[in-house]
Write a protein that binds this DNA or RNA. Structure first.
Length: 579
DNA sequence: AGCACGCCGACT
DNA sequence: GTCGGCGTGCTC
């Protein structure tokens, strides 16, 4: 017998090994075998009859039985193809750590009866309560949470097994096999749980579908939403995507009839107030309305959360709030202060940094930003008697990044202040509006209906704010989709980022030019000019816009670069659907 | 002739 | 990713 094995190496094809007599090896099982003279862990993707002469033998099995079903293998293959990565490195990065000694375990389920079910988008305020009720019924379920804290909360709430890295490896492994053999009906995890086999009929759940944490940098370079959608289609599982503010992609798919989306009636809603930061934010992070809200909320014995978004190095006019944007791409231009330049991150376009605001003629153009530490110090000075904290959820004033709202249950806060909404709105990213919309909506849900959300901004008329104020999603998605369509952004076109790191600037330049010329002649691609990521740097990148089958179009031309283009010290990375 | 280094292909 | 082969070029 011969086993075909894939490893965590950038190899396009599996390698064949002899299966020793007496060793039982199946597809989906991890094994140890010699690769380049060393023992390495690989995944068996096929077992077949054949002459094993000249082949090295499998040394031992790592899992006593398959850790993946046939669907899991197929899904891993699809993820690898979609993300231009190797099958082996993709799959091994999606599995729990290997045990030190082989433990006996039950085999994974194989067959998936039933038929394809339409995925569902749950956006209502009661979506979490409804999920709780839904999962108390029969059937297996996988809940994918945005982080380990959320996974812990949901595991406790649903009395489920935990598959995420927040629990010790042995417990994680046990949970994997408990879920696979049906001993644990519900499994909760993060991205690393996406391939866990479940006995049918299964329900797959993605919490906070819109959140960028579902596609972190690095392999496997694919959004959890897309992996689960593919999985649900392959194994006929039910797919529930939960988010009050779905990604623009999912909203569009719902409109196109590819997702079911029950639209809830508007419910009780807090006031959404904007506070003008003109001339204030430079010296102090709190406007008068926000200061008064903190006082009033503290008097009412409730907490105020102050959200401090990570500031982006964009140029903002302190007079009128104007933020320079690239005329071609519509994204905010980033400042390169040393060179006194404004640069678009997508295209090659650079402009000298203006001395005066092109809109109002004001002189106070500056890149600015407040971080949580500065805000905390400032708030303590202003409110010496209040309990101010960056970690204690019961503090009168709670300060943290946007992710802080994930851990605040609905109605648990008296008020939320977005210290610098403009840091989100003016980020050099076409998803800036979507992020601002999601942040404001999450703030509104976390606040009691009698409370308020204060958004400090120079853009009080932005449609994201108006949509949240009116509790009207349509008011956001409609103009947003129009903007995406006009400039050819997702969901209408797909993006890909190719970046290289050379030993020298000239080498980086040469390598990125080789990548670009490898793509010349591929139809239906828009390849942007390469840009250096820092002044005089050896790091270069370019963006590509293309159709839905973009990974298939790029795989052939870019393969030589991805497989063995580390020579000359040059390193090529390809990121599909960058977030 | 002998050895260090780096590039490059192979890895079953 | 990691290894080893082999060519280059320097040294003894």
């Amino acid at each position: 017998m011969i086993a075909d094995v894939v490893f965590d190496v950038p190899l396009a094809h599996p390698l064949s090994y002899a299966v020793p007599a007496g060793l039982a090896v199946e597809r989906g099982q991890r094994v140890s075998a010699t690769l380049s003279g060393r023992a390495r862990t690989g995944m068996v993707v096929a077992v077949r009859e054949g002459e094993a002469n000249g082949l090295l033998p499998i040394d031992r099995v790592v899992d006593a039985s398959p850790i993946l079903s046939a669907t899991g293998l197929e899904l891993g293959r699809w993820v690898a193809d979609e993300s231009l990565s190797s099958w082996g490195s993709t799959m091994l990065s999606l599995l729990p750590p290997a045990p030190r000694r082989t433990e006996p375990v039950a085999p994974a389920p194989v067959s998936h009866p039933g038929q394809v079910k339409m995925p569902e988008l749950w956006i209502a305020a009661a979506r979490h309560r409804r999920l709780d009720q839904e999962l108390r019924k029969d059937g297996s379920a996988l809940v994918v949470a945005p982080d380990t804290e959320a996974a812990a909360r949901w595991a406790a709430r649903l009395e489920a097994a935990r598959l995420d890295s927040g629990v010790p490896p042995a417990e994680r492994r046990a949970a994997w096999f408990a879920a696979a053999r049906g001993r644990a009906r519900i499994a909760v995890g993060t991205r690393s749980a996406l391939l866990v086999p479940l006995p049918p009929p299964a329900t797959l759940v993605l919490l906070d579908e819109h959140d960028a944490v579902h596609k972190p940098p690095g392999p496997p370079r694919l959004h959890s939403r897309d992996v689960l959608a593919r999985r649900a289609a392959l194994e006929h599982s039910r797919l529930l995507l939960l988010s009050a503010t779905p990604s623009v992609e999912s909203w569009w798919r719902a409109g196109a009839g590819q997702l079911e989306r029950p639209d809830p009636e508007p419910g009780p809603w807090p006031r959404i107030v904007t506070a003008d930061t003109r001339g204030i934010l430079r010296n102090h992070p709190l406007t008068l309305p926000l200061t008064r809200t903190i006082e009033a909320t503290a008097r009412a014995r409730r907490s105020t959360a102050l959200i401090v978004p990570r500031s982006a190095p964009a140029l903002v006019c302190g007079e009128c709030g104007h933020v320079p944007r690239c005329p071609d791409c519509g994204v905010t231009q980033a400042t390169a202060r040393a060179e006194r330049l404004l640069r678009c991150r997508l295209c090659v376009r650079t402009e000298p940094m203006p001395d005066r605001c092109p809109t109002c003629g004001g002189h106070r153009l500056a890149p600015f930003g407040w971080d949580a530490e500065r805000v905390e110090a400032s708030v303590r000075r202003r409110f010496p008697k209040l309990d101010v904290s960056r970690s204690d959820p019961r503090a009168a004033v709670l300060i943290g990044p946007p992710a802080l709202l994930r851990s605040c249950p609905p109605g648990s806060l008296g008020a939320v202040g977005i210290v610098a909404l403009d840091a989100v709105l003016s980020a050099p990213d076409f998803r800036a509006g979507e992020r601002a919309f999601a942040l404001l909506w999450a703030a509104a849900e976390a606040v009691v209906p009698s409370g308020r959300v204060i958004a400090q901004t120079l853009h009080p008329d932005h449609y994201a704010i108006a949509a949240v104020r009116g509790q009207s999603r349509q008011e956001f998605y409609e103009p947003e989709l129009a903007f995406r369509a006009e400039l050819g952004y997702p969901p209408f076109r797909r993006l890909c980022l190719v970046s290289v790191r050379g030993a020298t600037e000239a080498q980086g330049r040469r390598l990125i030019a080789e990548c670009a010329s490898a793509l010349a002649g591929v139809p239906d691609l828009m390849v942007y000019p390469a840009v250096a990521r820092a002044a005089g740097a050896a790091c270069w990148q370019f963006a590509i816009k293309g159709p839905a089958e973009l990974p298939r179009l790029l795989a052939g031309p870019l393969r030589p670069f991805l497989e063995r283009r580390r020579r000359q010290g040059g390193m090529v990375e390809v990121e599909m659907d960058p977030v």
